[in-house]
Amino acid sequence: MITVSVASGKGGAGKTSIAAALAATLGAGCLFADCDVDAANGAIALGARINIREPYFAGPGYQIEPSACTGCGRCHAACRFGAIEPVAGSRAFRIIQELCERCGACVDQCPTKAITTFEKQAGELFVSTGRTGTKLIHAELEPGEDTSGKLVALVRKRAAALALPEATIVVDAPPGIGCPVIASVTGCDLVLVVVEASASGIRDAGRLVELILSMKRQSVAIINKTGLNASMDEHARRMLAEAGIPLAGEIPFDPALRSAEESNRTWASVACGSSDAVKAALVNVMGVITTLKEKS
């Protein structure tokens, strides 16, 4: 089993479209794990039909029982996240859920045991089948929930459990370089870095590359949206060369690629000016995956 994580640093660089095209190219031996759990579009890209859905619980949150609270304020003093405030017109305190990190430091300090736990569904996990038969594991985090890294780990665990030994798992990572990205890249065999050929795209991909190198992951890159500015294209190539990341291909900016999404196809099967470049890049990525499989 080989795991390929598709990441970019910047949002909107083309991660999901490229990941879906790679999955379509891999065919039946591919499992797609959409780890962008708070903006999950893999199911749209692959035309997924949901087969199984299960609730996701993030672990207990805390609340203060107003009738049991004496207003001593020890919880307020213990909280380092500013998540406990006095209730206006009352002696009691309350927990601001949006700021609460669920560490439980307040619980230990309460002399009247007024702080209790509650469980709330924080999202849903799905096992689906794409329109061409690709198996998908994806999830939707409830807006405002704070455990995206944990849900990413769950999506990956479920994907690994369902994958056959010869399968390739394509992980669609979220943007950024934080907790859910680290969870999406940890332990993968290959990172496919999607660099948007723009000042912001190169800067953000550079931070991602720094992270990947520190995690000692093998990587390969695709530069997307080339041809808008030649010096940006060159800048992107140079950044990758300096980091020692091989370039699998470049995809020229082409609004016609949008028609893939609108005609229920992936970039791998749409016909437009950038089709050949997409196919060439995917062939090179497939070559790297094949070599990895031979080694394992």
Partner: peptide
């Protein structure tokens, strides 16, 4: 930031 999890929540709060 993009998304709707903790970084976005803190940013819009």
């Amino acid at each position: 930031p993009p998304g709707v999890s903790c970084p976005a929540t803190h940013a819009i709060e």
